[in-house]
Design a protein around this nucleic acid. Structure first.
Lengths: 108, 108
DNA sequence: ATCGTCAATCGGCGATCGACGATGATGAGG
DNA sequence: CCTCATCATCGTCGATCGCCGATTGACGAT
């Protein structure tokens, strides 16, 4: 076992990339980004044509890494892309250079 | 069913991100990158401390998107990071802007 | 030709994923 | 208070994942 990147750092990187490792989530993110205004779950459901519970799960995964932000509005919840994260989202170059992964919990 | 990013484009993006969506693969890529010279499977096995078959599987996934290149050398096979792909690897900004995903099969 | 080495592939196992329907929680409006 | 609307959560199912040991295949050396 030679010298490797810290397992924790690798895990953090993996969790970032995993957020976009599903085609439906890619579509959801692009959809949220194109319509600049925050969108409700129902709108996303209508867009992707999957069950509401499925969309809710995907949005949960995206918000867990703070790549998507949520704000309660009445009985609805509005989701939008975290513009700060668009820039800080790890790149392949970050991995190759062994840079510390951006912490999803902290400020991006 | 509103206007969405093409499913194929989304799938291609997802396959890119999936390559780095596992901590072991992140470690392997960083390991290959740091030791600039092409490395054999056995060296990677010794580094990560997993079974040879497991490492072989990970390397297969990484080479399928051409993010890692392989070259047969005698009975061994040498793996290295595809430097061209380090720059072309899709970013979160690419997804947000709905840009066409780089084709893993073509020239990066 | 045979043996040893290196790595890909196969089959299996437990864990996780993506999808669904059903249920539960919360807030707005009558 | 009750109802409706919106969304999260739960339980389940089949598919895939990550890992392993064992086998197979390809090559170099004896």
């Amino acid at each position: 076992m030679g010298d490797l990147l810290d397992r924790d750092t690798a895990r953090t990187y993996a969790s970032w990339f995993r957020a976009l490792a599903d085609p439906t989530r890619v579509q959801i993110v692009e959809y949220l980004a194109r319509h600049a205004r925050p969108m409700s779950v129902g709108e996303v459901v209508a867009a992707v044509g999957l069950a509401q519970s499925t969309v809710s799960q995907h949005l949960k995964i995206l918000t867990e890494v703070r790549f998507v932000l949520v704000e309660p509005v009445g009985t609805a919840r509005h989701y939008r892309v975290n513009d700060a994260c668009v820039g800080c989202f790890p790149s392949a170059a970050d991995v190759v250079m062994g840079r510390p992964a951006p912490e999803p919990n902290g400020v991006c």
